[in-house]
Design a protein around this nucleic acid. Structure first.
Lengths: 261, 261
DNA sequence: ATAATAGTGTCTGTGAGACAGTATTCT
DNA sequence: AGAATACTGTCTCACAGACACTATTAT
């Protein structure tokens, strides 16, 4: 697959914050605290030198029958010109997940997607500027909702096949590997795959999700047998007709059936 | 099970740092950086108010045929007098895992134990003093090596059954629940259980590890059949004789046999 | 002998994987 | 008729779980 550099809108990436924001002093929070012997101390939150904390979000979607992720081209040192996973600093009053959602919203404009904390990367030296600890989330987007935003244009944002990535900045390749692993494992025992499909889909489309992510072919009959036996699918009654062949039944995910794969 | 409050030595817990350390100013790191148009900016790492980052370590071990964790009694606000998972601030030049190992060493004196990153908890308000993001690790200790340290005395450190915990400080109960879940899942498809046993052990002892963690009885014959069929065990030739009954074969874990359960 | 735990084998049901031909639509 | 994809069933094998008796040691 060749590199994709499609249009993604909205301009401000999380990493922009890193350069553009105004200087702010640390608030000097003081909290009084009792010690063992009852003597009152002042607790000073600035007592320690603190690492920076960012939240990165690996957005994954199926596009052109391929598993692709959204990357941002760095315009400054370090790793200038290289592609990186979008992310940004965490605000003092938002949860980690909120920060991830904000990032997601800024980059793709979508909300209410599957979001899961992946891992926290914090080796000293992973960012040459300063100590940065990043809590990484990954998001699964269904390609249909994503189409909407694909109109605007930005040369520094693009979708790339996880199987054909350019060299990534920082330790981001490691992060992608980790995410792909997690995704593959969860595919086998959860219903996570449905998050990559629109509300209605055919069994063939679902099978394709598995095939693309697991990167191997699956037997059609065994796949259908297995999926249908779990009762997590609901026949919509509708059919999808495309091309010059027999139309396929459209199904819908039934979250009520908590049945695990 | 009743609460354990056994001796654990060495004095300085990670949480002590929180109170005792001297004030340190943030270093004012300045890194020059190129912007898009080539204009030179100063990058100031103190631009943002930053959360504190701690590393907590949930140490788990099998003691008295029970799954127990190490807790520390808080001696100051907030949650004064309540029990908490040990943890401490991360140093600027150590990795997350190193910080966890340091914590482990400080609390139990043991090294080279199984250590795995669990999850990162960072809701604003989880610590009333300030914004604290904690990267939680869990460690599995075999009870044998732990015995050594069980001699000294400290009233504010103790081992507790995960099934009979006192009320915990912060969101630490949630952390324990999360860890127990992870442990149970991994038990089924990895060889993680061996980390809770000494080098040599009987099949019955191994089965007990599973039973205690999964919190249910297992069939002896099925268990042995399953374990032995994987070839991950090596017969040491030795036998363990205790009590007035037939002695049991002693096995050793064979890591070479990468066979997954 | 008794007490106490170690150690062993069979049957049955379920699920995974291998495998090929018919059905329906459009041109 | 031909092209293209949807849809379906059987067999085999491996593994999980139910289940009960013999073996070995010390007292």
């Amino acid at each position: 697959m060749e590199e994709q550099s499609e249009a993604m809108g909205s301009g401000i990436s999380g990493r922009e914050d890193w350069r553009e924001e105004k200087h702010e002093q640390h608030a000097q929070v003081q909290v009084s605290e009792q010690t063992d012997n009852g003597e009152a101390h002042q607790y000073d939150v600035n007592k320690y030198e603190r690492p920076s904390v960012t939240v990165d979000v690996l957005m994954m979607s199926l596009r052109q029958r391929d598993l692709q992720i959204l990357l941002i081209k760095r315009r400054a040192w370090p790793y200038e010109g290289m592609w990186a996973i979008p992310g940004g600093f965490i605000n003092m009053n938002e949860s980690l997940e909120s920060a991830a959602k904000r990032e997601l919203q800024e980059e793709t404009g979508v909300q209410d997607v599957y979001l899961e904390q992946l891992y926290t990367f914090g080796d000293p030296g992973r960012d040459p500027r300063t100590r940065v600890i990043t809590v990484v989330y990954f998001a699964l987007l269904d390609s249909e909702r994503l189409q909407v935003r694909a109109a605007s244009d930005a040369a520094d944002v693009g979708w790339f096949s996880v199987y054909e990535l350019p060299q990534l900045a920082f330790d981001h390749q490691e992060i992608v590997d980790y995410a792909l692993n997690r995704l593959r494992n969860k595919l086998e025992y959860t219903t996570i795959a449905f998050n990559l499909l629109p509300e209605q889909f055919t069994l063939r489309e679902l099978q394709r999700v598995y095939e693309i992510i697991l990167h191997k072919r699956l037997d059609k009959r065994n796949f259908r047998k297995k999926i249908l036996s779990t009762n997590i699918l609901e026949d919509t009654g509708a059919k999808k007709m495309e091309g010059t062949h027999r139309p396929a039944r459209l199904y819908r995910f039934n979250p009520a059936a908590e049945h695990k794969l």
